[in-house]
Design a protein around this nucleic acid. Sequence first.
DNA 1: TATGAATGAGTGTTCATTCAT
DNA 2: TATGAATGAACACTCATTCAT
Lengths: 235, 235, 235, 235
Amino acid sequence: MTERTNEEPTGPAAGRRALARRPSNSREETPGGARMVRRLLDAGLLVFARRGYLAARVDDITAAAEVSHGTFYLYFKNKEALLHRLARECAEELDTLIVALSLLSTSLDEESLSRWLRDFVRVYQRYGPVVRIWFEAHDPDALMQSMADNVFEGLMAGLEQLVRHRLPAGADPAVASLAAVGMLERVSYYLTSHPEVFDEEAIVAVLYRMFAGLTFPAAGGAASTPGSGGRPVSR
Amino acid sequence: MTERTNEEPTGPAAGRRALARRPSNSREETPGGARMVRRLLDAGLLVFARRGYLAARVDDITAAAEVSHGTFYLYFKNKEALLHRLARECAEELDTLIVALSLLSTSLDEESLSRWLRDFVRVYQRYGPVVRIWFEAHDPDALMQSMADNVFEGLMAGLEQLVRHRLPAGADPAVASLAAVGMLERVSYYLTSHPEVFDEEAIVAVLYRMFAGLTFPAAGGAASTPGSGGRPVSR
Amino acid sequence: MTERTNEEPTGPAAGRRALARRPSNSREETPGGARMVRRLLDAGLLVFARRGYLAARVDDITAAAEVSHGTFYLYFKNKEALLHRLARECAEELDTLIVALSLLSTSLDEESLSRWLRDFVRVYQRYGPVVRIWFEAHDPDALMQSMADNVFEGLMAGLEQLVRHRLPAGADPAVASLAAVGMLERVSYYLTSHPEVFDEEAIVAVLYRMFAGLTFPAAGGAASTPGSGGRPVSR
Amino acid sequence: MTERTNEEPTGPAAGRRALARRPSNSREETPGGARMVRRLLDAGLLVFARRGYLAARVDDITAAAEVSHGTFYLYFKNKEALLHRLARECAEELDTLIVALSLLSTSLDEESLSRWLRDFVRVYQRYGPVVRIWFEAHDPDALMQSMADNVFEGLMAGLEQLVRHRLPAGADPAVASLAAVGMLERVSYYLTSHPEVFDEEAIVAVLYRMFAGLTFPAAGGAASTPGSGGRPVSR
DNA sequence: TATGAATGAGTGTTCATTCAT
DNA sequence: TATGAATGAACACTCATTCAT
C-alpha cells in the first residue's frame, strides 16, 4: 500500500532489491561507471561554483555533464550525496596540505612556503565551492560539519605553528591564525572569481610576504627591502 | 542569488491594479508603516543570518517579525526587495566607515585604528549577512553587484592608502589590501558566528596588530625592522 | 545548507516556524478550513474508489475537489495523511457497528439483524475504498495495519458470537466468522461497484438469509420455510 | 489498473525496428525461451502477491527471477503483457474448475464438493494475485475485463446451479451465488495471506459446511450432522 | 541472447506571490 | 491596513522502456 519513498530500505528483502537501480559502489567499479561519476562530480563543482550549492539544480549538473536527468540518480542518491563526495575529495586534498604545512613549520624558507601557498591556491581553484559551502553553511548536516571542523582546525593548528613564536606581543595566536586562514581563503577565492584581475604568481607572492610578516617578521617583512643590508642577526 | 520572480505585469490592466496593492513609499511615511518596515528588515537580517538568503523563506521572515504572511507584501515587493533595502542600509554604514578610513590614513595611531576596527566589526555583526551575500553572490542583479563593487573598492582603496607606503618591496599593494579586506571580513564573520570562542576585544587587538604590521611595520608589532637583511638561508 | 526536506522538524525553533504553512489542526478549526478538509476527504474517497489508492494522483483528488494542486498540501501532509484521516473515520463508523453487533448477539431477530446489515452496507458504500485498502494492503504502515486488525478482529469476534452456538458440528467458528466477514465485504463491494445489478434491499435480504442460516439454522434454513410469515412488521 | 505505457510506435520506421527487439513468440518456442518465460511469470506472481500489481516494479520481477533488467523486455512487451499472460493461465485453470463445478451440480456429495473446494483453494494459492487484480481492478483494459467477467460469470452460474433449488424462499439466487463467490474468494485469500492461522483442511471443511448449508439445507446447517434425520421441525 | 547504462515522462512537494475578506 | 487561504510554477526523484555492447 505504501508509496515508494526516499527512506533507506531496511526490511529483510532490502538487500536484494536494492541492487538494480540504486546508486551503488558496484556501478562505480566499472571503468565506465567511474568515468561517469567523475563527469558528474566535475559538473557539480562547475555548477556549484557558478550558482552556489542551494541554487544548483540537478538539471544544471546533468546539463553540464551532458547526460540526462535520470542518469544523475544512477550514480548519486541526490544532490547532497554528490556534495558529500566532493567534500570527501576536498578534505583529502586539504589534509595532505595540512600535513605538508606541519612539516613546513620546522624548516621554513621562501621557496617551500611559496610552494605550499601555490598548492593551496590550486586546490582552492578546484575545490573552492566546497570550502565556501563549509564556511558559509547554514545548518549543515553532521558529516559536512565534521569535515569542515577537521579542515578548519587542521589549518588553524598548522598556521599557528608557523605564527606563534614571532607574534607581536599581546596577540592571541589563535586569532592570528584565524586571520591567516581567512586571508588565505578570501584571497584564493578572489583569484578564482576574478581570474582576469590578478594572476597566481602575484597572489602567491603577496601571500608569502604577508605570511612571512607574520612568521619571521624581522627577516620577513624586511626581507624584501631592496638594498637591505646584511642578514638578520636573529635566529 | 536570483530567485525566480514574477515579472512586473505589463498588460493593459497593470496600471490600474498597481494602485491598491503595491508596496508604496507612502505606506512607509506613516509612523506605523515605518515601524513595520523596520521590523521586517530586522527579521530579514535575523533569518538571513540563520539560514542564508536563498534558504530563507518569506514565511520565516514574517514568523520572525511576528506578522502575517501577507503583510510582507504590503511593504516589500518580494524577498529581493527587502534584501536591496538592507543592502542599501549596509552600504551606507560601510560608506561612512570608508570615509572614516580615508581620514585615518593621514593621522594614524593605535587608538584611532582600533576604534575603526571595532566600528567595522560592529557593523559586520549587524550587516554581515548582506556582506556575505555580496561576496558570495552568484549571478547577482545589477544593483547588488554595483553596491558590492562600490563597497569593495572603497575598502580596498582605503586600506591601500594605509598599506601602500610601508609595504615590502615587490608586493602588489592591491593584492595586499585584498588580503587585508579578506582577513577583516573573515575574522569578523568568525566572531559573529562563534561568539563564544573569541570576544570582540581580542579580535580587535589582533586585527590591530596585523594591520599595524602591514601599515607601519617599524612601529608595528615590531614587525619588520627596516633595513633588516635578506632572506633566510633556504632550507 | 541543507535543502528543505520532508522530515518533521525537530529543532528548537521548529514550533514557531511550523505554524504558517504546514497542514495544522488550527487550520481545520475555522469553518472554512473544516469545509475544505471535508471536500478533500470526499474527493479522496471518490478517487480512491475510482482508481484505487496507489493509482490515485494528488492531482486527481484536487481536480475532484475543484481546488488547486497546492491547496491539498495546506490541509494534508501528503496522500497518505489523507488516507489515514479517512481510515480513522472509517474505523469509527465500523467500531460503532461492531458495538451494535455485540449488542445484537443477545437479542436476535430479523429486523435488528437486517437493520445492522443495512447499516453495514451503507457504511461500506461510503468507506469501501478504505476497507479494501485495509484488506488488500501490501506492506501497510503500522497505523493502517493496526486499524485494519482492530476492525477485522472486532467484526470476527462479533460475528463469532452470532454464529458460534448454532454452528454445524465440526466447523471451526473462527473460520465460519471469517467466511461471514468475507461474504459481507464482497457482497457489499459488489453492490457498490455494480449498483445497477442489485439493489440494497435484495442484498440485505440475502445477507440476512445467509446469516440466519449460519446463526439459527433450525429457524434459519427454515427461516425460509414458506409460510413463515414474511418479514416482521417493520419499525 | 492501467499504467502509463508507451503506445505502439506507428511512424514509418516502426515496421523495420519491430523485427529485432520485440518479444516474439518464436523466442518462446525454444526450450530455453520457454523456461525463461516461465521464470518470469512465476516471479511476477510472487511479486504481485508481495507488493500488488501497481507497486510491482519490473525490477522487482527481474530480481526475483534472477535475470537482468533488460531480459524482461525480450520476453514481454511490458508489465501488463506479463499480467495478461498470467491472467490467461489463471482463466484456464478456473475454466477447468468451472466445468468441474457444473458437473458437480448433478451428483453432489461431500467428497466431490470438498475436492472441488480444495482444488479451488489451491488454484487460488497460486493465482490469487490475478484474481484480486480482476476483482479490484480500476479501469481495467478490455482483455482483463472480459477475462474477469467470464470467470466471474462462470463461477456465479456454477454456484447458482448448486444453490438454486434449495434456497430459502425470497432469496435471490443470483445474490446468493454472489455471496458464495465472495466467501470463497475471501476465505481463500485469508488462507494464502495468513498461512500460519488456518490450514487448508480446516478451511475446506468450513467451506464445505457453509456451501452445504446453502445447497442442501434440508440436510442443513444441520446439515452436516451425519445421521441427522429429516428436516428440522420448523420453529 | 543477455546485459545494464541511459533516457525522459510522470508525479510528489514546496513556497513565492496574489487577493478576497 | 492586516490576514491567511488559494494558486501554480519550479524542482526533486522514480522507474518503464530502449538500445549499444
